[in-house]
Design a binder for these strands. Structure first.
Lengths: 132, 132
DNA sequence: TGCAGTGTACTATGATTCCTAGTACAGTTA
DNA sequence: TAACTGTACTAGGAATCATAGTACACTGCA
């Protein structure tokens, strides 16, 4: 469910945040669904509970989840519309990367094709290693 | 000529490497052209000479420039065809980012438009803060 | 009520990376 | 020779990340 790259420049907690956001946005994780506890997930991923907590705290501050002391952490009912910020961010990164791609001689058609493929993959259904 | 973001997660030397590569690939810097000396550039950018050296060393190891002790650093005559590696890397990053974009609801048309704009900007001539 | 599980908070520490500072040496060129 | 060039090295500060350990408050259930 989570592919963590401990050697990445991107911190583990940040990878977790992004991955969970993705699962929430795509409704793989549904509203009010309970997330694994800090300790459980830490044990599963063999990382420190503090790292999980940091990720959860970040997600809560952004409105993607809510936590209840003594009960657990749950997916927010309403996906936050902080997406607009996120969209801007992605667009900016995308611009840079696309520039680089074109500089490197990747053609527009190749880019179009890439988009088509990705869209097909998404539209065709997202597969996960989850329980049925 | 160089826009450095010291607050970025990306190290300064790495930003330098990328920027210089871009300038070399796009032939803004031409073959055998002499680059600013380590000390000069460091002074211009108000960063440490060691940081420049690190960038130059990296560029040299990748074949983009060559350095001669006592003379200076120069743009390689033949652009290395390590580009194929680079292209693969960019494509991979691009795939991830495009997935995210589509997940976030950015439409294909928006992406196409983005590509058009960037291509126009590049095709229209790259402007730099250089001496005439 | 007691216990096990939950989130939360805090300090301390190790590890890594980046950048800087300073010094030194070798080569080139005018 | 003097001033420039690249190169190499050690040392240290600063920041970030992850871990370890402990503690407390709350919830749910037997």
């Amino acid at each position: 469910m989570f592919e963590l790259d401990v050697r990445s420049r991107k911190p583990i907690y940040e990878q977790l945040v992004e991955r969970l956001k993705e699962l929430i946005i795509t409704e793989v994780l549904t509203a009010d669904e309970q997330l694994p506890s800090v300790r459980t997930l830490a044990h599963q991923l063999t990382i420190n509970p503090n790292t999980i907590q940091k990720a959860y705290r970040e997600l809560e501050s952004q409105g993607y989840i809510y936590s209840i002391k003594g009960k657990g952490s749950f997916v927010s009912a309403a996906t936050p519309n902080l997406n607009s910020e996120k969209i801007e961010k992605v667009k900016n990164e995308l611009s840079k990367l696309l520039s680089e791609a074109l500089y490197l001689g990747i053609t527009k058609n190749e880019l179009y094709k890439l988009i088509q493929e990705i869209e097909a993959a998404i539209g065709g259904g997202i597969e996960d290693d989850q329980n049925p």
